[in-house]
Nucleic acid binder design. Structure first.
Length: 758
DNA sequence: CTCAAATCGGTTTTT
DNA sequence: CCGATTTGAG
């Protein structure tokens, strides 16, 4: 008799669920139900094998995946039993462990976690102190280098040994200083969360032993995207019991640029000769035509050692559409229109649709098209909630309440709102603190308690600084006694941020940003259940570690909307209808990857990931012209399109035409998809170069006449009366520029802004 | 120190 | 093109 937890699983999946001893490597294609396998396996281990939830460690790629998996396990075997499984991303799990045990590394556990923005601020400060020009040494690239080193577990000392260029010399000096600074601020950056944990385990085997004993089963999803530190961590924690369960898809490896090593998988196999390798090849997600396209893209890969066949029994389905748009705006408009058509015809929810693209910047045109058609959408990525300036300001206050030595946060808000503590004063303070070898906070305290010998500032500035110190100190006094929500309330009462936002951004946007702060306060209510003194630290930790996809919840309450998302973020997700936009040379493959064959191959896999997100319908789009930075260029369709046999695609015109554009049709059909694997882009011969066939010319869309002209007087619901400065047609929409006395000049979409003529 | 004007420069992808 | 940062005047 089949066990209840195995019902509905195929033979390979059952094998994976039941492989309860020793190292297991599951090589799973897209849509093969690996999440399901992981879920059922955990439930099975607990219910049937008698493993305690507490003894299971499962690492997922996003926090969202962990949350959903926990919920599903709860449905299978009961919430209370699912509760104690240790689940999350590498980063969140390491943060939990460090919070508990970092004192073994002589560090306090009230550390704060620095995100990209904070890291950058530290770097800038360091460049300033080292007297290096920011122009010459870009803080981002220096930090990128340090980050890469940390991912490879190369500390300052080892980095020093491998310096081989002048740039490295500079990086080394910054690296040393950067580490010092983070230590002084009692801060860890993203990379430290992993690296310090590995260090902790390395230097303190007794601490490691506790974890290694506890976690009888170590499971890791998306193992192809792990970097060296993460792999070390897996090996450290898993070595005791040797019950590894690693799931991955080599063809979906898209994170080499942040240190992911495919070699981890190979090394794992070599280190464990007894490894069981279980393939999952059946795809339950997509129709055959979609998989055919995906397969043809991956089959053209330069390195075919890993290409495995995936198959489905869903033979029927629409052919994949290939669409050439005139420019990025038409591309977006066409997608929006097609969504409206299909939605009506097939009775679909907006949740069924996703638009995927290579760079975040591409989302803009889609947003505009959705807005003008009143289609609700959900933008994933871009500026995230916790990266918004006003949110970061509040968070910075909370951070110094938690850990006043956090210099980045302190300097961020010391003059927000304006307290007349300008750059000059700040630099003086900083210098003074450095000379005394104390943190800025310590320096402020010295100043406030009048213990200072020769303070660097006096008069008004000094008074302002002391006021600030008192403010923070008084809030700090409350931190253990007040619920997080109340603490934020007190903060907002004493720091007039609302007024500041209105002053800075105007009535409307100021109110919008204030809403964000109130939303933050709302989020803080989720921590009510924790003991009062734990609320703030846990909140700060999560603020730093949430990713944007995490917020893509499956909440039934929310309004349906089209998902706009980057290809990277789309990994692991699926949608009935998918539009892959901007399949052009320079975009996919991205221009930054063209001189490196390995990177090009990663771009290919990225497209593979994109195509395999689609369940029923897939559209691949490129534009004839694309505007970047206001400059419009003629494009070349992505070389990867040339790897798809023509009979797998249907060309779909973007507008009603009597006949297919002659050139486009004949070109496509006459091109023989003979692949010259890896050596040269096969499409280049088809499209680019003077000798190639002429690309279809499309007439410019006839602009319909603008209905407003300069000098017209109009009224707007929010801005009141104004005078039209100019008006132009942007596609189907009229963009009116209106000057509102006292409110400034605004660009408005006529269809949207509901202007009244006066 | 603050404000406005001018200049610069940036786009991969993310935990 | 748009935002962030720098510069110069008050």
């Amino acid at each position: 008799m089949t066990h209840p937890l195995l019902i509905g699983l195929n033979a390979q999946q059952q094998r994976a669920v039941q492989a309860i001893h020793g190292p297991v490597l599951v090589l799973a294609g897209p849509g093969s139900g690996k999440t399901r396998v992981l879920t059922h396996r955990i439930a099975y281990l607990i219910n049937e094998v008698g493993v305690r939830p507490y003894n299971i460690l499962a690492v997922t790629f996003t926090n969202k995946a962990a949350r959903e998996m926990r919920e599903r396990i709860g449905n299978l075997i009961g919430e209370s039993r699912a509760h104690d499984v240790m689940m999350g991303t590498f980063h969140s799990i390491c943060a939990r462990w460090l919070r508990r045990d970092i004192q073994h590394l002589q560090r306090a556990n009230d550390f704060v976690v620095y995100d990209a923005d904070d890291q950058q601020r530290v770097m800038k400060q360091i460049l300033r102190e080292l007297d290096l020009s920011e122009k010459q040494y870009n803080p981002r690239s220096i930090h990128a280098r340090i980050s890469a080193a940390k991912n490879e577990m190369i500390g300052v000392a080892e980095f020093a040994r491998s310096v081989s260029s002048y740039f490295d010399e500079i990086v080394l000096r910054c690296y040393e200083r950067y580490e010092k600074q983070l230590l002084a601020n009692n801060a860890l950056d993203f990379d430290d969360l992993l690296l310090k944990t590995v260090n902790l385990f390395e230097y303190h085997p007794d601490v490691l032993a506790r974890y290694a004993e506890r976690y009888v089963h170590v499971m890791v999803d998306e193992v192809q995207d792990t970097n060296r530190v993460q792999f070390s961590l897996i090996n450290q924690v898993g070595a005791g019991h040797n019950n590894y369960f690693l799931i991955g898809d080599i063809q979906q490896s898209i994170y080499a640029w942040r240190g992911a090593r495919l070699a981890n998988v190979r090394e794992f196999e070599e280190a464990h000769p007894d490894v069981q390798i279980i393939p999952l090849e059946q795809n339950y997600r997509s129709t055959q035509p979609i998989l055919d396209v995906a397969q043809s893209i991956i089959d053209a890969a330069y390195d075919r050692r890993h290409t495995t066949k995936i198959w489905t029994d869903q033979q029927d389905g629409e052919l994949v559409s290939l669409v050439e748009a005139y420019d990025h705006n038409e591309e977006a408009r066409w997608v929006a229109d097609e969504i409206m058509r299909i939605r009506g015809r097939e009775g679909r929810s907006l949740d069924d649709f996703a638009v995927m693209y290579r760079t975040n910047a591409q989302s803009r045109a889609f947003e505009e098209a959705m807005i003008s058609r009143n289609l609700r959408y959900r933008l994933v990525g871009g500026t995230r909630f916790y990266e918004r300036k006003e949110i970061k300001d509040v968070v910075a206050y909370l951070r110094i309440i938690h850990n006043p030595h956090d210099e980045v946060s302190l300097l961020r808000v010391i003059n927000v709102p304006g307290r007349s503590i300008g750059d000059r004063t700040q630099q003086e303070l900083l210098q003074w603190a450095r000379n005394l070898d104390v943190s800025i906070w310590d320096a402020l305290e010295l100043l406030a308690t009048n213990e200072a010998q020769s303070p660097p500032i006096s008069g008004r500035a000094r008074n302002a600084v002391e006021q600030f110190q008192k403010l923070v100190a008084s809030l700090r006094d409350l931190r253990h006694d007040l619920m997080l929500g109340e603490l934020i309330q007190r903060l907002l009462e004493r720091v007039p941020l609302q007024e500041l936002l209105v002053a800075e951004y105007g009535e409307e946007e100021g109110a919008e940003r204030w809403e964000n702060i109130l939303e933050l306060q709302n989020v803080s209510m989720e921590y009510l259940a924790l003991p009062t003194e734990d609320q703030l630290p846990r909140f700060l930790e999560e603020v730093a570690l949430v990713s944007d996809v995490d917020s893509l919840d499956s909440n039934k309450e929310r309004e349906p909307g089209v998902t706009l998302i980057t290809l990277h973020q789309a990994k692991g997700l699926e949608y009935p209808v998918v539009f892959l936009a901007g399949l052009e040379e320079g975009l996919l493959p991205h221009g930054r990857s063209v001189d490196d064959p390995e990177s090009i191959e990663e771009e290919r896999r990225l497209l593979y990931v994109g195509t395999t997100r689609a369940k029923q319908r897939l559209y691949m789009l490129y534009a004839f012209k694309r505007a970047t930075w206001g400059r419009t260029d003629i494009t070349i369709p992505s070389r990867f399109l040339g790897d798809i046999p023509k009979d797998l695609l249907q060309r779909t015109p973007t507008r009603e035409v009597k006949q297919m554009p002659v050139h486009a049709a004949s070109q496509w059909q006459s091109s023989t998809p003979q692949r010259t694997r890896g050596t040269q882009p096969s499409t280049s011969s088809m499209w680019s170069g003077a000798s190639g066939p002429v690309r279809p010319k499309r007439p410019e869309r006839e602009p319909s006449a603008a209905s407003y002209s300069a000098g017209d007087k109009v009224r707007h619901a929010n801005f009141g009366e104004g005078v039209v400065v100019s008006s132009k047609m942007v596609g189907d929409d009229e963009e009116v520029t209106v000057a509102f006395p006292g409110k400034g000049v605004k660009k408005l979409l006529a269809a949207f802004a509901k202007l009244e003529r006066v």
